[in-house]
């Protein structure tokens, strides 16, 4: 049975932007759409697509509202999102450890 850590990677999470979104949401507890767009240097449309993927997978919750007259979209991590992020980081660390311990040919 092949237990290579790369086989356990989740395609939804194992993507640079989506991993960035989960990381920021985890650290921030709650993050606004505009902050994510600035930090990840994305267009609104591109960020929305990634958010839809994460929301569809149940990893984040999106809450739309107003602050005064200004529309605001807040993103929070779900418990499944927290677990997925921790798993992904664990797999990445395993991959690094495996690369470091595998002797070169």
């Amino acid at each position: 049975m092949n237990d290579h850590p790369s086989l356990g990677l989740d395609d939804v999470v194992h993507q640079r932007v989506r991993l960035g979104i989960l990381t920021i949401a985890h650290e921030a507890r709650r993050v606004e759409f505009g902050y994510l767009r600035t930090q990840l240097d994305l267009t609104a449309g591109n960020l929305s697509k990634h958010l839809s993927v994460l929301e569809g997978a149940g990893l984040i919750e999106v809450e739309k509202g107003y602050e005064g007259r200004r529309p605001r979209t807040w993103i929070t991590l779900t418990p499944a999102g927290t677990t997925a992020l921790a798993d992904e980081i664990g797999r990445l660390k395993q991959l690094i450890a495996r690369v470091e311990t595998t002797p070169e040919d």
Partner: peptide, 11 residues
Amino acid sequence: MTSDSISADDP
């Protein structure tokens, strides 16, 4: 950051 899919060699 770009939206490229990452390969297994850049963890």
